[in-house]
Amino acid sequence: MHLDHGHTHHGSVSADAHRPDGTRRALRIGLGGPVGSGKTATVAALCRHLRDTLSLAVVTNDIYTREDAEFLLREAVLPPERIQAVETGACPHTAIRDDISANLEAVEELEDTVGPLDLILVESGGDNLTATFSRGLVDAQIFVIDVAGGDDIPRKGGPGVTTADLLVVNKTDLAPYVGSDLGRMARDAAEQRGDLPVAFTSLRSAEGVGPVADWVRERLAAWTALPAPTA
């Protein structure tokens, strides 16, 4: 077979850092974590926090409804054309890790239709502690757990807790009511994650997402500081 390595791109085939026209594509950040830990609420809060200074879009991966996309629409955190829902056939982890084609289609379509974009947030459907994003889909990933899910989750580890670029421990305001020890969670997380950062959040107040937003801004600064791609 003739292998033509110089073939032109009509849509990229992997995690190329540039778009077909040679411009830099948006930074893609994945958000994963168990059901109910506050992924969608975190996405909504990030959108409110960042939308005035950045060009943003969101891809949701709902498990069996368009609930997450519709929540974001109802909350009007972004115009509807900046939110895309991907269907995952009962396997949310497959769509973000093993077969990322539908999500890649969605992020590229967003860049084509509402771009140029600075940042695309890809929200996974609620899954288990082993769910992680493919590096072919996102540049960095956030794993969201919450204090009500049990303060032993950081100790249990798993790929999400141990390898995510940022671990978010959400709903800290509930800790006293559910008997979760935030200090223990922080110590266990540090033990599992080494130098990787952990953010404790409560989204009850508008500023609650601040530490996550700051981390996203840092990632974006690092992304845009990379040498310009060659067309």
């Binding site: 003739h2 292998l3 033509d4 390595h5 073939h7 085939v13 539908a102 289609e105």
Partner: peptide
């Protein structure tokens, strides 16, 4: 068509070549 596009992405990464490039260009 959506599945055709998704298959094309996987196919071009797996068996790159001018035939698939031409088909992708003809049907963006």
């Amino acid at each position: 068509r959506r599945l055709g596009r998704q298959l094309m992405r996987a196919a071009r990464a797996t068996w790159p070549g001018p035939g698939l490039d031409a088909l992708a260009a003809a049907f963006p």
